[in-house]
Design a protein around this nucleic acid. Structure first.
Length: 426
RNA sequence: GGAGGGAUGGCCGAGCGGUUUAAGGCGGUUGUCUUGAAAACAACUGUGGGGUUAUUCCUCACCGGGGGUUCGAAUCCCUCUCCCUCCGCCA
């Protein structure tokens, strides 16, 4: 959610933003918002004057002794109340429309976000690590995993249908090792994230606060009976953690890391990426999240990007860092880095992390503020989120990068303590 | 699942149709006193919106959320959420 004040004072900045996001029609929405905002303020002026009068008159009535005069005053006030009701109704209508339109306007891209027309205009910032040279043809994880007996696609389908799988034995343990190792990495002092375990089902209002509703309703799983919503990412419950709170300036930045399963319908992508474990309705992810002061969010983005990079680097996976262009950044993001790891078996770069500075866009919606100093007005915090990392794709990259000619897979050194010392999956 | 009791400012806690401009207390900030601190005393101390600006003042809304009754609602009615106590069930 953008600040109405920003739209009021710098409409051209907002319009340029939506054009750069390749959504020029929204520029007209900005104009409609400006009109509604003016109308709203005009109405408020009128109705509030009337309400001030009513408050005065009501007090007078309370003190009146003469019954006839009192009755006359009450009748008179009834007339005024009709006008107030009508105006209130109109304000309500204007307000609802205004909120609806306002919620359709995406965040203004950061000046450093490259302007681009398609995802082809994303900028590769750097590539780290050399893709390994194989003296045999590397297998894709769906072959590798099936032959090792650690990924069972048939039984996954039996249990829940397409896009589901079962991790078996060392495969299940490898994923658990990755999760535990990642959480331990992010909670170390130099990264500074606090581990939290949150509900995996939340109320609708938490999804509104995180910006998932109403826009992404179709991608969410929902229990109608209890009105519980399955989280599509840990970003949702962690954003909600400080909903309607005013934080102390001294406790910022607040960094959180959380492991959750993520549940997504993936309707839009039906038919794409059906093979393997790259995209499913249920996947695990370790997420990083930060609440910070506005002036610190640029640095916080780099800190989080570095934390995500460290995860890839310490696993020994070749990866590259992409700076997303205006056409490809998410709705709430001002600036986003994507991290992609190389998967030699399926022969593609897999997005394992997306690290974004959301500015005050989400904080405004979730109403998370901080107080700079005692006595000063609370201000909105900035929030950032990033994966650290998504599990299925990291698992793919580990299996495919560490495979050997005989179909066995070497366990990356850093994971061995969580694997009971196991060195090779075979 | 059943029965009952609650939700009021940063915290505690009164108010249960009209001098409430939400009492009182605690905490906090500032000041007086003091070499300094404490104590005492005094003042100030919520959030959001709109207007105004001689930067100060005016105004509206908010007593868990939403809706209603009324000239007037923290107070009455409806509804939802959450918390507590007891019973039942249960990993």
């Amino acid at each position: 959610m953008l600040d109405i004040n920003l739209i009021r004072t710098q409409p051209d900045l907002v319009k340029t933003g939506v054009r750069n996001r390749q959504d020029p029609a929204l520029a007209e929405t900005v104009d409609e918002i400006l009109g509604l905002d003016q109308r709203r303020r005009d109405l408020l002026k009128e109705v509030e004057t009337l309400k001030a009068q009513r408050n005065t008159v009501s007090k007078e009535i309370g003190k009146m002794k003469d019954a006839a005069a009192r009755e006359a005053k009450i009748l008179e006030q009834r007339q005024v109340n009709e006008r107030i009701d009508a105006l209130d109704k109109e304000v309500g209508g204007v307000d609802a429309r205004l909120q609806e339109l306002l919620s359709q306007i995406p965040n203004v891209p950061d000046t450093r976000t490259p302007v681009g027309a398609t995802e082809a205009d994303n900028v590769i910032v750097r590539t780290v690590g050399e893709p390994r040279q194989f003296d045999f043809t590397p297998q894709a994880h769906w072959d590798l995993g099936a032959k090792l007996g650690i990924i069972d696609f048939e039984r996954g389908t039996k249990l829940a249908g397409s896009r589901f799988y079962v991790l078996n034995g060392a495969g299940a343990r490898l994923q658990r090792a990755l999760i535990a190792w990642m959480l331990d990495l992010h909670t170390r002092a130099e990264q500074g994230y606090r581990e939290v375990y949150t509900p995996f089902m939340v109320r609708a209002e938490i999804l509104y606060a995180a910006g998932q509703l109403p826009k992404f309703r179709d991608n969410l799983y929902h229990d109608a009976e209890e009105d519980f919503w399955m989280v599509p990412t840990a970003e949702v419950p962690v954003t909600g953690l400080h909903k309607d709170e005013i934080l102390e300036a001294g406790e910022l930045p607040r960094r959180y890391t959380a492991y959750t399963p993520c549940f997504r319908r993936e309707k839009i992508a039906a038919g794409r990426d059906v093979r393997g474990i790259k995209r499913g309705h249920q996947f695990d992810k370790v997420e990083m999240y930060a609440f910070c002061r506005p002036e610190d969010s640029d640095a916080e983005l780099e800190h989080m990007r570095a934390a995500a990079e460290a995860t890839c680097a310490q696993l020994g996976l070749p990866y590259r860092v992409k700076l997303l262009c205006t056409a490809d950044i998410g709705f709430g993001a001002r600036m986003t880095y994507d991290l992609e790891v190389w998967a030699p078996g399926c022969g593609e770069w897999l997005e394992v992390s997306s690290v974004s500075n959301v500015g005050d866009f989400q904080a405004r919606r979730a109403n998370v503020k901080f107080r700079r100093e005692a006595g000063l007005r609370p201000e909105f915090v900035h929030t950032l989120n990033g994966s650290g990392l998504g599990l299925p794709r990291t698992l793919i990259a580990v299996l495919e990068n560490y495979q050997q000619a005989d179909g066995s897979v070497v366990v990356p050194e850093v994971l061995r303590p969580w694997m009971g010392g196991l060195e090779v999956l075979k």
